[in-house]
Amino acid sequence: MRNTLQLVVGFLFVTGINATWEQERAAELGQNMNRPWIIKGLHGLPTSCPGANKNKEVYEKDLTKKLGDMKPFSDLGKDNQGVYTFPPGVDYEINGQKVPGDSLVVKLVDMCSAYDSCEVEILRRIGSLRDHGKLWREADFGPKHGSDCGSDSGSDASVVILDYGVLIMDKVKGKPLSQYDWWKQLSKPQKKVLVEKTLVDIEKKVYNFLKSQQLLYSELDLDNFLVEIETDVHGIHSFKEAHLVDFGFSGIYTINKIPEPEEFDSWFYKQFNHYSYDFRTAQGWSEFPRPGTFAQELAESSEAGKRPSDHDARTGGTEQAKKQQQRRRKLRMIEDY
């Protein structure tokens, strides 16, 4: 009896510690998202997103007959149950033209939220959306998915037919780093170099998305970064380019102004360190420090645009140089705005 009591007390103690630790992590994330330039709503979630409340409109076209032959896309991150691809050799018709199926991916959306239509608008803005509509199929994730939101049709999900929203988009090159076969064979320093280079590239792309669309991509999970790798004749793997995937609610926030590079730099690494906690712990790594290059690169590129060459200084500047200076001034005005 005494041993049982000790086990129960010990379990409750550990559970209490874990609960406190989770609360602290949640508080840190909330503090990082509590920047004056990020617009938030209830419980710290986005207030809205572009294209909200249009599920019926954007998912009106029935694509069931065109999408009868899909297979799970098993190489895309850890949460890929709703992502599919086409079998080899199968084409998909878009606006009367056949597009190779191996260049596309299909994502199913359950349409249980008014924000599920937002991803259509965001993917359209970034230029990767190819088609969208709805698909009728047997529920394979449980009876409460699809447009039958909140209802319970029984425990046997295989007999429940639901309509799903469908996003057909360009397949992004690369994989999450941990999905590569050779990843486990790398040393920790080699892994760290690839992660650091990925972060430098992703930070630039998130900031550019912020400036061009006034939308903040916040779910900085390594499984949302698809990395292209170059492998030389000696089998050495080196970083080529990284891409963002998963632009759905609630990972996209609106903003009220463009933050300064230093402010964004601070936000980015705190956000990544939060999302990468499990990964870093498995590798025995502490938090990734800010490399101090992002804001510096932007500043240097800006300064380079301001400095005239010696020849231009002597001649008063060529017509081409004057036009370039005008374009740079307009660009700075846009960025400042």
Results as ranks from 00 to 15, higher is better:
residue 299 A to W: 05
residue 326 Q to E: 14
residue 299 A to G: 02
residue 322 K to E: 07
residue 320 Q to G: 14
residue 300 E to M: 02
residue 317 G to M: 03
residue 329 R to L: 09
residue 320 Q to M: 13
residue 329 R to W: 02
residue 334 I to C: 01
residue 323 K to A: 14
residue 327 R to T: 07
residue 311 H to F: 06
residue 312 D to H: 09
residue 326 Q to C: 13
residue 333 M to D: 14
residue 324 Q to C: 15
residue 328 R to K: 10
residue 319 E to Q: 15
residue 310 D to M: 06
residue 298 L to E: 01
residue 306 K to T: 10
residue 304 A to I: 12
residue 318 T to A: 10
residue 333 M to R: 13
residue 301 S to Q: 13
residue 318 T to R: 08
residue 310 D to F: 06
residue 297 E to W: 03
residue 303 E to G: 07
residue 307 R to F: 02
residue 330 K to F: 14
residue 319 E to P: 15
residue 307 R to Y: 02
residue 307 R to N: 07
residue 332 R to H: 05
residue 324 Q to Y: 14
residue 333 M to I: 12
residue 305 G to E: 03
residue 318 T to L: 08
residue 333 M to N: 13
residue 312 D to V: 06
residue 306 K to Q: 10
residue 334 I to K: 04
residue 298 L to D: 01
residue 323 K to W: 13
residue 317 G to V: 00
residue 332 R to W: 09
residue 328 R to V: 10
residue 309 S to Y: 02
residue 305 G to I: 02
residue 299 A to V: 07
residue 310 D to A: 06
residue 329 R to G: 01
residue 332 R to K: 10
residue 317 G to W: 00
residue 316 G to C: 02
residue 310 D to H: 04
residue 298 L to K: 05
residue 321 A to N: 07
residue 307 R to E: 02
residue 311 H to Y: 10
residue 311 H to T: 03
residue 322 K to Y: 04
residue 319 E to Y: 15
residue 332 R to N: 06
residue 303 E to N: 13
residue 297 E to R: 01
residue 332 R to V: 04
residue 320 Q to K: 15
